[in-house]
Design a protein around this nucleic acid. Structure first.
Lengths: 337, 337
DNA sequence: TTGTAAGCGTTATCAG
DNA sequence: CTGATAACGCTTACAA
């Protein structure tokens, strides 16, 4: 069942060669490495290409050259959440921005948790030259395994992985949390609570550790901790649990801006003023943070997208890429402290 | 410059054939149409496939079969906006959900406005079997042109296009606006203003027309109209201009939920209560609408994503797809009226 | 600098 | 039902 456009019979390299009066090899050279062909020939061939509207067949190219000129961005099953999350919707533009300056195309791979084998097959089908994995806990094992045979870059250290053969880009989550928490200590908070992220994912664990470290260093208690998934709703719920304990606290570190947004709702619903009664800091400088006017720690998401794609293209080209790259974060002052 | 995994030398169909003691043709049949091969043979071949970890090379397949098993979703240059917009982040999951039940893969094509030729080449490179175009005004001409040679489905009628050879899925924008506006009339509003969407895109034009029609039918004036792009910010600004005119109005139709959200801000900043002083209705049932508790018109975005991808796959398969499909909309009552 | 020819890994046609 | 064998459209040594 041929694709419709075959009806027209797309012009081939052969046709161009005939029209230009050269061999197919020459046309191929003009297309791929014009610099090694005399200018007049390049011109003639290009004229023929334009006249015929010739477009190289990518399948044939891949087959012959072993390069697909495509990289995959692996995204989790639950795409609705994925696209709505500011983190991803900020990393992806970074990726596409970098790629637009290259010959590479981005392919979105929806990883069906139900069918890991389908994902694996796609990754190894030669359809793509490499893959970008944005941290999400499911199936990380599969990717770690595939990374032995396919160039891959991980944004965020895969859950449960502590080897060193992977190429990982990440922020220092513990340090980001420390930065955020320290802001509360510096503001004079003496009783600091925390709504942490999930503990089955590295960023969640590390941020909590960073919080604990700073609180301990300041000689304060760290018993006011609740866990939430990263969402606004759960952030509000977790903060509600914190409030139910009946312990007064004057500072709150929320592990993400969405959690913080939920926390603000809960605090205010409880009649507490921010920052008057409770100072709040968090991590992520996205529209949640700016919308709620939160003092936060910014991670360079767009740059991350650009860096990981650049690294992947480098890796595919046989370049030497550091195993671990830590991107810088910095505090952004707003009005929640 | 070969892809790294070539080092390992991925197992080929040939290798499987040898191991299973059959010909390559038979292996191919087992992979593609197992039903026409005796069960015992299928088993033997599958065993060999598993043993070798064989994965068919997609480039070779495409080349021989003229099918890429990939469809493209064309998205505009400005990806940051794209991913943040609830419309797209809702349509895409619909697309991926449908595709996950098929053998097709989704490829995100970032259309660089700067280089339409690059886009065109990609579309015609044989890399993809068809394309989905989500309405956005730029470059629509290119797509209309390409649609002569490549199966394409348009979500939203392309700007400036009024022929009938395209396959278009859309809602009845005029009717949606009419529905929304009529709710205001029914609520007893006697002076209804409108913050319309851009007039260089069909949905913007049609929604404004729908508004005008209902207002006229009700015998009311339609002189209180301002134009905004679809954003919250511009919605607020346009509403500000409306207020500056000094004319009292008791109803406001905003052409999108984002515009409506901005309108609410402006109205409240002006000391007006919604719905007390001004009743507001809009279109889009996304998180803006629910967040601001807006009475609105819902369009089935997720279903749209599923329907257009289903249609495209059908079209690629030579199926007969209606030229125009209108999806239903309905009013969702909340507290802004 | 250019052309020849041998693949690249499948699918598809056609006998057997 | 199965197996040769010829494409598919391009890249790439290797020659010339």
């Amino acid at each position: 069942m041929p694709t419709l456009r075959d009806g027209a019979g797309a012009p081939t390299l052969e046709a161009v060669a005939a029209l230009a009066g050269v061999s197919r090899s020459t046309v191929s050279r003009v297309v791929n490495t014009p610099s090694i062909v005399p200018a007049r020939v390049v011109e003639a061939v290009r004229a023929a290409i334009d006249e015929l509207g010739y477009v190289p067949n990518q399948a044939a190219r891949s087959l012959a050259s072993h390069r697909a000129l495509t990289i995959a961005l692996i995204i989790p099953q639950d795409t609705s959440r994925f696209f709505a999350d500011p983190y991803y919707s900020s990393v992806i533009p970074g990726v596409t921005r970098f790629l637009s300056g290259t010959d590479y195309t981005l392919s979105l791979l929806i990883a069906s948790e139900a069918d890991a084998e389908k994902t694996r097959r796609y990754l190894l089908s030669g359809n793509i030259d490499g893959a970008l994995v944005l941290s999400h806990h499911t199936q990380d094992k599969l990717y770690v395994e595939v990374s032995h045979t396919l160039p891959m870059i991980f944004a965020g250290r895969p859950t449960g992985y502590d080897g060193d053969h992977l190429h990982v880009f990440d922020i220092d989550n513990a340090e980001a949390a420390a930065l955020s928490t320290r802001r509360l200590v510096d503001a004079g908070c003496r009783r600091i609570a925390c709504v942490s992220g999930p503990q089955d994912i590295n960023s969640g664990v590390d941020r909590l550790a960073g919080f604990r470290r700073v609180v301990a260093e300041a000689g304060l208690d760290d018993d006011l901790i609740e866990i939430a998934d990263w969402s606004v709703e759960d952030g509000a719920a977790a903060t509600g649990r914190l409030l139910e304990r009946g312990v007064d606290f004057d500072g709150l570190f929320a592990a993400s801006a969405q959690i913080a947004t939920g926390a603000l709702e809960a605090l205010r619903a409880h009649g507490l003023a921010v920052p008057g009664d409770v100072a709040v800091t968090t991590i992520d400088n996205d529209h949640y943070a700016s919308g709620a006017n939160l003092t936060t720690v910014e991670q360079p998401t767009v740059e991350l997208g650009a860096r990981i794609s650049e690294a992947l293209v480098g890796l595919i080209g046989g370049g030497d890429i550091p195993k671990l790259t830590i991107l810088p974060t910095h505090l952004v002052e707003r009005a929640s402290v």
